[in-house]
Design a protein around this nucleic acid. Sequence first.
DNA 1: TTGAAAGCGCTAACAA
DNA 2: TTGTTAGCGCTTTCAA
Lengths: 324, 324
Amino acid sequence: MRQVAKRVTSADVAQEAGVSRTTVSFVLNNRPGHAIPEETRQRVLEAARRLRYRPHASARALAAGHSDIVLLALPDMPIGAGISRFSEELATALAERGLTLVAHFAGADDQSLQDVCAAVDASAVVGLGAFEPATVQALHSAGVKVVIPSDGNAPSMRHVGRLQAEHLIERGHRHLGYAMPTHPSHLPMARHRLQGATDVCAAASLEPPVVIDVELEIAAAEQAVRQWTSRSVTGVCSFNDETALAVLAGAREAGVAVPRDLAVVGADDIPTAALSLPALTTVSFDLREAGRQRAEAVASALAGRAPTSDAAPVGPELIVRASG
Amino acid sequence: MRQVAKRVTSADVAQEAGVSRTTVSFVLNNRPGHAIPEETRQRVLEAARRLRYRPHASARALAAGHSDIVLLALPDMPIGAGISRFSEELATALAERGLTLVAHFAGADDQSLQDVCAAVDASAVVGLGAFEPATVQALHSAGVKVVIPSDGNAPSMRHVGRLQAEHLIERGHRHLGYAMPTHPSHLPMARHRLQGATDVCAAASLEPPVVIDVELEIAAAEQAVRQWTSRSVTGVCSFNDETALAVLAGAREAGVAVPRDLAVVGADDIPTAALSLPALTTVSFDLREAGRQRAEAVASALAGRAPTSDAAPVGPELIVRASG
DNA sequence: TTGAAAGCGCTAACAA
DNA sequence: TTGTTAGCGCTTTCAA
């Protein structure tokens, strides 16, 4: 005695509306060229509504040769409000274009990403950071048509690092440090941000930042701070706010006064950044706009169009609180 | 000049191995009953490997009548490390059973959830909190076979609140406060946790906790702290660590010493909890085990089996640092 | 032990 | 303007 919830098929709709399945398909997908009289259209639409018809995604994908699934590859650790907003916006903008977004929490390995792509028959993958070339290759061979790393806006990523460094340099710091995250999935993005900071130093004829890996743990952060101060670093750009909070804690532990003896700048403006003492100066990026842009990029690429002129990307914004 | 990356089909594999497509299908899915000689099996397997064959998910779903996609419905706001680990574990355990997990950031509306289910042809949906009965209904009519809310472990949620309150009471606190989150998507879970704390108070013949909504913002938190102290509250259970960090900041601002004048207990043990001053006492729940259990539940339900005996749920664990 | 053949529900030439 | 028809790649019954 199984649930025999007989599926409503397009044939049912066709019959109900007294037309052929072809007509149903054309109406429901507004295929142009096939000028269908309004009267018929309405009849089909109404039949579909009455029957609560939902096209079968798998069947459609099989026949059409492509799905309308877009996969968001998320780095496997902490998803802040920023990313949530990004994906929300991305999902909405994609939906307007008939595409559906689902997310995958990428493990360190590419394998799972490939598998998931194959399993959902994804047409496109949007990444939050960069992708290794090999990964892109693998994705394509897993049937993915379009891969959009979000370092398509690497400039914006670098810009985060740049803003951090500029902020410090403007305040007179001549020896900068950079706090790198230890989590592998953050590394590609971190490198971009670091690059931005490094560029700024070069432009100002300063040494590149002293790069130290900082775990989210007080003792480790304390060591990092001691190293920086012993190398006369007075200002630290941190990959993100969590890392920055660790640096803050490390400084406290090492007896280094922030911002007097060591200035710290974070990134991403997580909610708790404003709660620390001293409150964290941070650089934040409007991911919403980025979400919309990615959606457009995906849609264009899938349609074979050249990506439409990238609407002027909204740059990151510096949020100065007390500690920087 | 489009990429003509001709798909490798099971027919190709069949030809390469010199067998029929039926045989290929049987081998690749280890269909029992069809005792296939080891020699043939190997031949097929190797041909598949050589050709890098990947079954086409949509075609398979269409033919089989169901996909192997499980959708994780995430509340729309902040995804901490806990949830990441949960979904990681869930994904792994599902994969072992041939199922694939993807996530959806649910907006407030059920509509998008339904749409996504239909779009990926999901067989099952796992929720993080509870589902309204109407939602469950809607999901079923969107073709979802199995819906697993995770408030199946409401007891564990309540247990979080219980541990927090017990910890405070053991330390002599007689007037407790409870810091509620303001984000709507946290509310259902927060109510469960609060209930646990309330139960403990009742059992100890104490007044129920003084409940105050705390935004992640210093001024608001300061107000909350003042209210608590003015009502002689000396210990506060916070919905989660972020809220607790806000309370900590509010106390600092209000000139209330933690933990001397006000003890604070958080929940979830986010990485930055250990970085605050004073370090946050927190109650953390092993979501990994929960992930494995959900996977088993999904697999059982999809197979039409009764869920196997729920392996004894691993309870939350109290992590005492300094501030509680 | 293996293969032939009939669909699954949909799209899209091509006819009418 | 609408319908006929042939698949998309896979599973699975039934026959060999």
